[in-house]
Amino acid sequence: MKVLWAHDHTFYFNDSGKFFSSGKLPYAVWERYLSVFDEITVASRAKKISSETEIENKSLSSGKNVDFIVLPSLSNPVNKLTKKGYIERVLTESIQQADAVIARLPSEIGSEAIEIAKKLNKPFAIEMVACAWDALWNYGNVQGKAYALFATLKTKSQVKDAPFAIYVTKEFLQNRYPNAKGHTEGCSDVEIPETCSTILDKRLNKIETATKPVVLGLIGNLNGKTKGIATALEALAKVQSKLPPFQFRILGGGEIGPWKALAARLGLQEQVYFDGVLQSGEAVFQWLDEVDVYLQPSFQEGLPRATVEAMSRGCPVIGSTAGGIPELIDKRYLHKPGNEKHLARLIEENITNKTWLMEQAKANFLKAGSYTKIHLDQNRQEFWEKFSRFVKEGGLQA
């Protein structure tokens, strides 16, 4: 059987026709679906890599039984008018040749694929990975705010009627985007290696033998405002004089210039470092091992992979109440998105408190254990096996 997977993710491809991802969608992700389907066609956005150096720190997404369809973006009004017809034609042709559709939402391409699947009476499943309202309203421009309500209502309608829906959260997305009568599962798309007690031991020793400067860390794309980088900078500026020497290190791709300018305006130019992009896995874990306190002041999230990764390294975490973050972190150490005053107070009160650091290191490390690959694979596998049987049976039983 053949399945089409649709989302707005931007891949990168070279002259040899190989596709790469900036870390979230390596070939290992497709193997989840290939365990129950024979072939997968990935319909998404993509950019041509102009030099081999651009492949650095990106993961190979191409592999056996995986094909790619490159589609233009539908995330701006001009393309919605000029490109929508082309996307509909390409998706219709591809879905006609597929046995089923898997759409990752929220996304414009995923949403289009669902509507076409319905017209063609093709079985479909939805992967719900974030909140459409939060993503658009907090993106940082008027266009996003104007489109937020429409996109949210459309996403709610599609999830409600889906025969199969899998959520990355346990409660948050299920409550905002309920499914009426289909088969559902709550299973994070985070995959971390099995945790080892030596990781926690090293973290506790690091806390006990603390040296300056204190390192605060954040992982997130620099394009857009959803990761709350500005909130973190404003919070640190408020309490800078009350803190010991510190560094704020940011890992992620995107345009650095505006953030450097903001840091300078806030008097933080000597404390803020932009560490670029690292390949997912061991390189990121090594970076996290140097972080004393991890910050996740996001405006929108599903279940943030970076937070779980930080927890798996024993990092104490201070975060916002966005998305599924409250499912991970003690509510006493959460602030409302954009509330830099509360974040500043949490930072000031806790980052040099060894008792708090020790307690949070242990609690977070333990919590992260429920997000290891071995714990998640079984539930995810059962979900996709049920969907595969549903497809084989002609979509007659959910």
Rank of each mutant, 00 (worst) to 15 (best):
A264W: 04
N179F: 04
G228S: 06
K227F: 11
A232S: 08
E171W: 09
Y167W: 04
A230G: 12
K202Q: 12
Q296T: 04
Q269I: 06
E171S: 15
D289Y: 04
S188W: 09
H183V: 15
V168I: 08
F248K: 03
E208Y: 10
T169K: 03
T226E: 12
Y167S: 04
L288D: 00
G217K: 05
P193S: 13
K242M: 13
G253R: 03
A261R: 05
E194K: 15
D275T: 05
G276K: 13
I199V: 15
A162F: 01
A232N: 02
K160A: 13
A261F: 01
D292V: 04
F248S: 01
A264C: 08
Q247P: 03
W259D: 00
L288T: 02
E171T: 14
T209L: 07
L204M: 02
G257A: 13
K242Q: 15
D201W: 13
L243D: 05
I166E: 04
P178M: 06
G281A: 05
V190N: 10
T169S: 01
E282T: 15
Q279E: 14
G257S: 08
T211E: 13
G220R: 05
P245Q: 10
A283M: 13
G217L: 02
E208I: 07
W259F: 01
L236A: 11
G276F: 08
G276P: 13
V215I: 11
A162P: 02
T195N: 15
N223Q: 07
L233F: 01
V272D: 06
K238N: 12
K206P: 05
Q174Y: 10
A264H: 07
G220P: 02
V293H: 04
N205G: 02
Q174F: 13
K260I: 00
I192P: 08
N223E: 12
I250Y: 01
P193T: 10
L204W: 03
S157Q: 10
L233M: 06
I219G: 00
G182P: 00
P178K: 07
D289S: 14
L243H: 08
T226Y: 06
R176C: 08
I199R: 14
L251K: 07
L288K: 01
F285P: 08
Q158K: 14
R265T: 09
K181R: 14
A263G: 05
F172V: 11
T211F: 07
V272W: 07
S280Q: 15
D189H: 12
A263W: 03
A261D: 07
P193Q: 07
D161A: 14
V277L: 15
I250E: 06
P163A: 02
V214G: 09
L268V: 05
K225A: 14
S197L: 12
F172D: 14
Q271V: 06
V277Q: 15
H183D: 12
L216P: 08
E270T: 12
N205H: 07
I192A: 08
V291K: 01
Q271K: 14
